[in-house]
Amino acid sequence: MLTNEDWSAIRLTVELASVTTLLLLAIGIPLGWWLARSDSWPARITSALVTMPLVLPPTVIGFYLLIAFGANGPFGQLTQALGLGLLPFTFGGLVIASVIYSLPFAVQPLQQAFQGIGERPLEVAATLRAAPLDTFLHVVLPLARPGLITAAVMSFAHTVGEFGVVLMIGGNIPEQTRVISVQIYDHVEALEYAQAHWLSAGMLVFSFAVLLLLNLFKRNGARS
């Protein structure tokens, strides 16, 4: 069945998806709020940028990240100056790439949830003496709960399912950057179809279960 290497790939994938999801929520909540409320040009441009990973081939994103974070790239020089070394082909590099690649999957449901709340609950809260941050924490976030859950689940699932970006920026280093999708690729290359089946079928079941749960949750939310 699953080898030690397979298990290590699964562990690494879950770790990567968890860290990425937390970071995406931390970035996506303020970003989604800003995009939901602002009609300015910077907001429109940011909105287009955030959506780009949906339409670009992962290899394009991976390629430019590799250059930007490489030894001669602007971010590469920055990370070196900060004493972090170079990020490509490390777990850290993988996290950054995953965050960028899954950004639209976190920001879009959040933005839609925030827009759906409308102006009225904010005004009601203000007339009930709630300061803006108070309103955000105790009115906006609870009302946007379905959006928060969708954003978290989609970020996690999409990170688990990525391959192109990971291969470009992370390579294929056991225990560090070899996630499930890369491991499956290796198995297939080595003609170990039985091994590839176990992991691939696992991914199939996982993805289906996640999407089914999300669907059930949304229906329940709409009913109540």
């Binding site: 009225r120 609950p121 005004e123 009601v124 809260a125 009115v139 609870p142 009302l143 709960r145």
Partner: peptide
């Protein structure tokens, strides 16, 4: 307000 605007949550 015109409509009651109770917090749904």
């Amino acid at each position: 307000f015109q409509e009651a605007s109770l917090f749904a949550h």
